[in-house]
Design a binder for these strands. Structure first.
Length: 420
RNA sequence: GUGGGUAUAGCUCAGUUGGUUAGAGCGCCAGAUUGUGGCUCUGGAGGCCGUCGGUUCAACUCCGACUAUCCACCCCA
């Protein structure tokens, strides 16, 4: 039996890796401009981190984690999301003692045990940013802008930014009671999932796509209309911040995030060009998370952005990638003596940072030329017995077919003619 | 975890109502007179037709199971 890749994983092949490198490059530059530094945390953590950080009641923790015991009997989990590990590191390394706020980004693989489908894998890659230490909602606006700017600067169209506030523990508690009271006598008409949600997480009922649930909820109270003064002011200032930046947004009172730690701001960036999983970027504020993970009481906000989904949109919208870097030179040799010379010249040129290659397949000159053509090199150097006798080489310009001679030992002249 | 679709060369796919040596395009390799790519032409390599079982004189073709994959639900990046 041939060994195949595990379900829900993908190889990023040499022929397509330039796309990833391009996107990563854009991300790094964007983060630097916005004042974010990269952090790299382990791919696995103690299971407890996610249980406490992400929340025991979430789907992620309940059924989607890759958890195992290592040889020392420790319960280990492959990271299912990026925020909790960054929070752990922030606390563990006392980064809260540095000047605040702390602005961090990461690009990391994540692991969730789910049935794969369009835009959903078991191993996927997330770009995320986090800001710790400031409760100013202008920071929320900045964070949202980083996500939007990334997508827009790559040329993506038809994006929808939806924002909401999920309140704080104080006003949410009151609101939950209010919502449950509203739903109490409509419970029978809801789908069976929502009947469960009524007890576990009533907020999520608002998010249900079931028609009958939507109808029942037409005049349900929204969290957004029941915020405490603090949360309300925070949300108003967020909108002002977005207006100043010039970002269009839709206030969507039904946005609910699946992770327990969110407070106040919740947002999603949605595209219709992915398939059923429209969210390419999702995040929000989590003012209680750091304390909950054992750190000092510190506000925070961040997002996760799915890179596979990003690639999907790019492809589905037909957005071209910058061209891949090509080798510039191929050295074709005829015969053994010439091959030695080619080897010598190849490495001499590489030392001068010329992207060059030669034949290692014992091909005929014609086949070497064909191969060079496929590599899309700009020039081919040809060395044979005739050339060695005269101490020269031939340099062929692959774009116009012109052939020039150069002295074999005049490396400067060779470089000039190769580079043109 | 639930539901549906698909499974034939490296890739994208044909394959007639079950019937003899299973095809195409692309890709790969080699040639088209003597040391030169792209275009064209010719030839070649490469498939236990996903796996196992069943029906049949006969299965790539029909049936079943399994596996893989895709899509959708739940949920999320």
């Amino acid at each position: 039996m041939k060994i195949k890749r595990p379900k829900g994983t993908r190889d990023i092949l040499p022929s397509e890796v330039y796309k990833w490198q391009y996107i990563e490059d854009v991300i790094r530059k964007l983060c630097t401009i916005n004042g974010y530094k990269e952090i790299r945390t382990p791919v696995f953590e103690h299971t407890e981190l996610f249980e406490r950080g992400v929340g025991e009641t979430t789907d992620i923790v309940q059924k989607e984690m890759y958890t195992f015991f290592d040889k020392g009997g420790r319960s280990i989990t492959l990271k299912p999301e990026g925020t909790a590990p960054v929070v752990r590191s922030f606390i563990e390394n006392n980064i809260f003692n540095d000047p605040q706020p702390t602005k961090i980004y990461y690009i990391t693989p994540c692991y969730r045990y789910e049935r794969p489908q369009a835009g959903r894998l078991r191993e996927f890659h997330q770009f995320g940013i986090e800001v710790f230490g400031s409760k100013d909602s202008y920071v929320d606006a900045e964070v949202i802008n980083v996500g939007m700017t990334l997508l827009q600067s790559l040329g993506i169209k038809n994006l929808e930014l939806r924002i909401n506030s999920v309140g704080c523990p104080i006003c949410r508690k009151e609101y939950n009671l209010k919502l449950k009271a509203y739903l109490e006598h409509k419970l029978q008409g809801l789908c069976k999932f929502c009947q469960d949600r009524y007890n576990t997480n009533p907020l999520r009922i608002l998010d249900c796509k079931e028609e009958k649930c939507k109808r029942k909820l037409e005049d349900a109270p929204f969290m957004l209309d029941n915020l405490c003064d603090d949360c309300k002011n925070h949300f108003e200032r967020l909108k002002k911040g977005l207006d100043i930046i010039g970002l269009d947004y839709i206030v969507d009172p039904k946005i609910v995030r699946g992770l327990d730690y969110y407070t106040k701001t919740a947002f999603e960036i949605i595209s219709n060009d992915i398939g059923a999983q429209g969210t390419v970027c999702g995040g929000g504020r989590y003012d209680g998370l750091i304390e909950q993970c054992g750190g000092p009481s510190t506000p925070g906000i961040g997002f996760g952005l799915g890179l596979e989904r990003l690639l999907l949109i790019l492809e589905n919208q037909g957005i071209p990638f910058p061209e891949e870097e090509k080798p510039e030179l191929f050295i074709a040799a005829i015969g053994e003596k010439a091959d030695d010379k080619a080897m010598e010249l190849l490495f001499e040129l590489r030392r001068l940072s010329i992207k060059a290659d030669k034949d290692y397949m014992d091909r005929s000159l014609k086949a070497q030329m064909k191969y060079a053509d496929k590599l899309k090199v700009k020039s081919v150097i040809i060395i044979g017995d005739e050339e060695i006798e005269k101490n020269i080489i031939k340099i062929k310009n692959m774009e116009n077919g012109e052939v020039k001679d150069a002295l074999l030992n005049d490396i400067d002249d060779i470089v000039n003619k190769v580079r043109r």
